[in-house]
Design a protein around this nucleic acid. Sequence first.
RNA 1: GCGGAUGUAGCUCAGUGGUAGAGCACCACGUUGCCAACGUGGCUGUCGAGGGUUCGACUCCCUUCAUCCGCUCCA
Length: 552
Amino acid sequence: MTRSMEKIVALCKRRGFIFQNSEIYGGQNGFWDYGPLGTELKRNVRDAWYHDMISAHNELIKPDGAPSNYQMVGVETALIMHPQVWKCSGHYDLFHDMMVDCRETKARHRLDQVRIRKVSFEGESVEQEDGSRLDSVYVSTMSDEDFEAELTSEALRAFGKKKKYADRLQWDGDATTLDRIPESDFNIVVGPGATKAGTLTSPREFNLMMKTVIGALGTDDDAAFLRPETAQGIFVNFKNVVDSCRVKLPFGICQVGKSFRNEITPRNFTFRSREFEQMEIEFFCRPDQSAGWYTYWRDRRYEWYQKLGISADRLILRDHHAEELAHYSVGTADIEYAFPFLDDGEFGELEGVAHRGDFDLRSHMEGKLARDAAGELAVEQNEHGQPRHRGSGKDLSYFDDQARERFIPHVIEPSAGADRATLAFLCEAYEEDEQPDDKGNMQSRTVMKFHPRLAPIKAAVFPLIKKEGMPEKAAEIFGELKAAGLSCQYEQQGAIGKRYRRQDEIGTPYCITVDGDTASDGTVTLRDRDSTEQIRVKVADVVQEISERLNS
RNA sequence: GCGGAUGUAGCUCAGUGGUAGAGCACCACGUUGCCAACGUGGCUGUCGAGGGUUCGACUCCCUUCAUCCGCUCCA
């Protein structure tokens, strides 16, 4: 396999794309630093996104596939927000997962995902961890679908009975989940896959939000959180933007910025990091048009990656099944990439496009929402019948002065990972091919085939040899490219072939070489990264030629 | 968090209880002059970190950090 993650990670380090964070101190798990080339690459990814989604968007023209024309604006909000934001958004409750470990199977489970049911079998017993025997135990499974059948087979296994005795199991109560029984009963629970009862540890809290402290005195009352997503900064500013910027529905508010999550297992290079950057759009529209906008954004974002060089056979658009949807979502699709660290047929999420209905704006008006008994979203109540988490109380509805209607807009959220996109472009670009050396023998070559828009270095300028005025002429051309705002490099050391290979390895699409003919006919060679072919171009036309190729 | 593996020059890796090596890369000079590995010379390491045993530790022991694989988790 030529495209291995190991090789890509090594190249990233060797050539200055991505480094382990705090490496000289032994590193910090879950954090990564971008080197000079990685910084250029990631900035190009962000710039391409911002340009294509916002700057270059023409609000006067209805794009193909869109229900109507629309506006796009940007915001940049603080990393730290009022703690109530996270309570109403649902993160505060959801990000405090209670987990149990199993001493026997070494497995860790989310408390609310362990299905259990109490059972006995005609006075027979199950061994407890300490050796004593129990004639009534809870059996458990992590199975979500068909858990009733799973619980039955787990029960038969616990009592050492064959399948045909299933109807002799004596169930005590209905199936429930582990978070609904007291911890004192854990000693009679047979953990998922375990053979003995009582091997589960006490539940422990995993706080997925990163905590910080505001103020120099920093007491517990001053606790705040680093945002786990940029989206809430947009929602809480919805009214500000509407009131200040002459925007009319439908319109999108966008934001690029860092977010933080205490991932339990950061892994797979930068794919799952604790500090990461998001590129988010919250697109506000009339509820009766939201389905059309959802489809529009989903398809548009899927195409965006392909236009920047991701091949269609490594990218999938995956609609979530109904049961996979978050409680607030009407529809969600993931845009996923076949990263080299995944098994064949597996894909990793680059971006989620979610139809969020009016959940977010309503939450910040009324308070944290949850599904009620009828399945409708309603303000979640505490034991006193009060809102569990109180909203802002501000009116975030929108008045449509054409239709003379007031309503809470629906939201379509295309939420992309800047680091994940950058990683996908890195993985996609990596290629090893064969090129002839000066004797015509084929030699392997490592080449990063970045889309020219994303390439960290757009062009390299070389004098063929270090004399006869060539370095001076090359320096002049280099200066002109720089002045035109193009990121480029100058190299004069080493054989010309080696310089080409070095540029191939960092994905520079074009190399310009000043040679013996330059002085006489005023031309240089322009060499293409992918084909290695060269053409002659007039020195005076170099900047324009490169610029045109980059924009084509 | 659990289990397994790994950590020695920029990279790939050798190495022995007695003051650390090779190839490549890099730099300089020379040569060639349009697709890497020609000649000569040169630079480089707190042998992942901390502690212990020892007269002496890269080597033995403990702890820790990071990376990879598997499990778990992934709003």
